[in-house]
Simulated scan of single mutants.
Amino acid sequence: MLPPRPPSNGSTSKHGMIHPDDAIRQTDDDASSSRASAISLGYLSDPFSPLLYKPSLQPGQPSSSSRKPPLINIGTHHRTIGIDTLVNQFLQNDRSVKKQVVSLGAGSDTRFWRLMSQPVPPNISKYVEIDFPHLTSPKAHRISRSKKLHSVLPPSSTSSFSTPYKISQGGTRLDSAHYTLLPLDLRPSPSQSIHQLLDEHLLPLLEPTLPTLFLAECLFPYMPPGDSQSIISWFGERFDRCVGVVYEMSGLDDSFGRVMKRNLASRNLSIPGSDPFSTPQSQAQRFLDPSLGKGVFEKSGVKTLWQVREEVIDPQELQRISKIEILDEIEELKLVLEHYVIAWGIKGDDMQSIGL
């Protein structure tokens, strides 16, 4: 089980003790530093990453912004292309219809800015990013301090504010016409279920009649499986046209997985949400589980990152990145990539063509 809900005022208690959720929050630094490494070497292009991600400096440890091994850089590249492909398919599906995107555990993600800076931005009605207040607070600050970031936020015609955004809840929340950064712990409490939590805090920001996509990148493994399934069922119940995209590790019952679990345990991390979804097929099936009730999806699919490499990424792109760093151990790369999957669920007749 995950530890109790954290307070909303930071990462340490009033006595200065390290908060038990800090290990989970550190996973955002892991992902963001890997992305920063891939960007710095030319695997990916993202001018917004250095504006939203500042490496954490811990005494006695090297900077997390240091260059990562080729295996990590390539995996980050493949993960990005696979997820971007699904998101772009969703947004380009009947561009005349407004869309909604919810990114769960968004951390320092830059996807909203990358999308809205395109020559023809997608028709997004609302983009919501959710994370711990400890992580939304510095992000809200960086957005407000950077003209390049907040200039992407169009002003609301009904807003009385001089800026295109409003910061509230002690600097942890940012609202604009099409983008909201929402500080929210997605775990249930004794007095409030996940469905009630999302109904109260997230649903008022969205329009149930619009096509909606939710992203969960390396979030569900750190939650009890019942909680992650509750989140999936909530989206399936509330939106008739819905796409869910999940990225996480899989197949951890072998030697590779045991090593990964030991490494996580050394950092006070456990992944209780991974055990019931130990194969790629089970990751796809989670969207079709009858226990989801009215929230069950109609169609699902899954690919490992190795399949993304072999079947989705353009061969010319693979040739380009092969020149960035020398990688002799293709079998080792395959082993690593086969332990990460992108799964998706589809609901709605006009969503059925989406998939990798």
Rank of each mutant, 00 (worst) to 15 (best):
Y127G: 00
V128F: 06
I81Q: 05
S117A: 12
S144L: 08
T110L: 08
V87A: 09
T85Y: 03
P69I: 06
L135P: 01
H78D: 09
A106Q: 03
S137I: 09
L57M: 13
S125E: 08
R95S: 15
Q61F: 14
I83N: 10
V128T: 03
Q58H: 11
V101C: 14
E129M: 11
I130K: 00
Q92L: 15
L71K: 03
S137Y: 13
S65V: 00
V102D: 09
S96Q: 15
Y127W: 14
L91V: 10
G60I: 01
H134Q: 15
A106P: 11
K68T: 02
L57R: 14
S66C: 12
S96M: 13
S103R: 00
P59R: 01
G60S: 04
R95A: 15
H78W: 08
L91C: 10
P133C: 09
V97N: 05
V102F: 13
S108L: 07
V101T: 08
P122A: 10
Q58W: 05
V97Y: 00
Y127I: 02
A106M: 07
I74K: 11
P133G: 10
L71Q: 01
H141R: 15
S96E: 13
T85R: 04
E129C: 13
G105S: 08
L71R: 06
H77Q: 02
T85D: 13
G82L: 12
S64K: 15
N73E: 14
Q61N: 14
P121I: 08
P70S: 09
G105F: 02
S125T: 03
K99I: 06
Q61S: 15
I74S: 01
L57I: 15
A106L: 07
N93W: 01
P119I: 05
D94E: 10
L115D: 05
L91Y: 13
Q92P: 06
I72S: 09
I83S: 08
M116V: 07
S144Q: 15
H141T: 13
P133N: 10
S144D: 06
Q61I: 09
H141G: 04
T136R: 08
V102Q: 11
V102T: 09
R142H: 11
I124G: 06
L91F: 09
M116F: 01
S65I: 05
Q61W: 04
G107R: 02
R111F: 02
F112P: 03
S64L: 14
Y127R: 06
D109I: 02
K68Y: 05
S117I: 06
P59A: 09
Q118P: 01
P119A: 01
